[in-house]
Design a protein around this nucleic acid. Sequence first.
DNA 1: AACCTCTGCACAAACGATTTCGCGCGCATG
DNA 2: CATGCGCGCGAAATCGTTTGTGCAGAGGTT
Lengths: 350, 350
Amino acid sequence: MSQRKSRQPTLKSIAAAAGVHPSTASRALNGRSDARIPEDTLARIRKVAADLGYEPNPWARSLRTQRTMMLGLVIPRLTDVVLAKMFEAAEEHARDEGYQTITVSTFDRKGGQQELINRLIERRVDGLVLATSTLGDPSLARLEQEGFPFVLLNRASRSYPAVRGDDELGAYLATRHLLETGHQRIGHIGGPQSTSTAKFRLQGYKRALSESGIRYSPDLVRYGQFDAMSAMKGADELLSQRPRPTAIFAINDVSALGTMAAGRRHRLRIPDDLAVVGYNDSDMAALLPIPLSSVQVPLQQMGQLAVDLLIDRINGGTVETVVLTPRVVVRDSSARVVRDSSARPARRRR
Amino acid sequence: MSQRKSRQPTLKSIAAAAGVHPSTASRALNGRSDARIPEDTLARIRKVAADLGYEPNPWARSLRTQRTMMLGLVIPRLTDVVLAKMFEAAEEHARDEGYQTITVSTFDRKGGQQELINRLIERRVDGLVLATSTLGDPSLARLEQEGFPFVLLNRASRSYPAVRGDDELGAYLATRHLLETGHQRIGHIGGPQSTSTAKFRLQGYKRALSESGIRYSPDLVRYGQFDAMSAMKGADELLSQRPRPTAIFAINDVSALGTMAAGRRHRLRIPDDLAVVGYNDSDMAALLPIPLSSVQVPLQQMGQLAVDLLIDRINGGTVETVVLTPRVVVRDSSARVVRDSSARPARRRR
DNA sequence: AACCTCTGCACAAACGATTTCGCGCGCATG
DNA sequence: CATGCGCGCGAAATCGTTTGTGCAGAGGTT
């Protein structure tokens, strides 16, 4: 055991030092409007508290107030830059609002989500931000039923309150961008269809195609796991086809990286032989040797909003889902095709 | 206020249901060796607790035991993949050991560190893992003096217990690798010299040079902030020199990315005209269009070890700094030079 | 002078667990 | 039969807050 004797001053000790009863000290320091305390007593108590460096013991306080001022953040993994960005913003914002956050990663393990949520509830967090939910997730129903406050982030499920980007629109815009630069045979590296993000983005991709009168073909779509490896494998399959796609819209930037790697294996030049667009516009995108076109999503804002909504909900408000609008950022990986010549690669069939 | 009435069963309620005194129930459930409870009573209490879904209230417990089973993790930012990886591992390991973690980012703000540490201590975490410390950091002295358990991660400061990679060795190996592939004019994009990592890596770079009889020249070194932008600027300056460096060792992978971007601006081909080596071997490195050579560091192991050490310290152990050994992973960004031809680019002076 | 109304604060009861103390009781021992 | 001992468990204190209640005394009204 460490030697430190927990010599934090307690409310009782500062009350004694100020010559008042602990209850009075409590009222003075919490500044509730209902209890009227004369100016001088109040000042005296405040001074003593400051001098002794008093900090209220949060456990004792929580025990009494039934609030912990803690939020639980549940994410698939911290190493995903996109998630990290949202959660960094969420954590900072929560802090500004007086809440501390406990962040846990599920690593996509099967029962993991439920187990972790339970741990957080046992810790008596005041509410949860969930960025892991899959579409039919049963744990959400349980939470809702128990009246436990939660907000989804980046994912949708049922009509539970959520903060997310407009994935359908983002995918639509990305695909449209490729169509507008002349591509007709556009592949898609998707994500797990159990996630709302992947599903919506596939829909956006389809809508853009059909608007241009191009028939959707499942042959041009492969599903990965949001990671580079599975994307590379999928892209490899797409690029082995004849005629092969001249452009690929990937579900995220890491998948786009995998896609470009596959392109390299096929000795394709980017963007001349293959145009690639990613999603999320992570910092890396602009810095790549071939800068990557991507769909920009206001990630920080999403993290912040999720916390705002959650706090509202904790305080008894009824909150609505917020959907934020993305935009396409065009870079070399998809643009040069147009600049280089008038011959549009999409025409090169066979 | 939400409607949920905090209907969690309490120790008293399960004691009543089992027909025993709360103290007995407590003993039964905590299984302390000193109190001997007959098999049947114990089983009965356990059963009731399980049936009612009893979970001890952590605040009440902490209030009594003076322990929270919570650890604070302080990092500069979550969006740095390297840090995220360490902390993901740390969080998971802590969880396995029964601890929850509160992670906060300082965003490198000046007074931020001290302020955040205070917040965590007010929350009465049992200990701290600090990955932010600069070399002369005064907050550490305070912690040490108050006997508050902490462990540094990835950084060194004084002789405080830490878990880190051998930065000097890693940099030495990276530089040596460049020397062995024939380079002589090797630049270095460093980091803030207030951090132990940056300082040690510079030393390793110097040692490798001097071992090969090459004089160290400050002209070949620029200092960034661990990020791509400042690295790009520094690399741009280095590459504007005549003769220009034929290889650059960057303080981390993101800086290497910036360095490669600068190379592109100067229309240099990598690795033929410019070889680049990064540090940390982040996932991205292998997937880049030009796969990046890098120094591999056991990040997950570091995160895990930091937690182990911290828990040891909390339990009164005296712990020693652990230094882990890195290794160089050679990829295209620095290797092809040798494979392509016998003409070594380093020889091309003017 | 009797009565009422505020102030300003003390008292004490929670909140939900852990832990020290010690009391009966049964059994063995002398 | 008296004493001693260990076992199983209940009683009560404690951790540090918050908060409902109520009591004195000051000041005003009739």
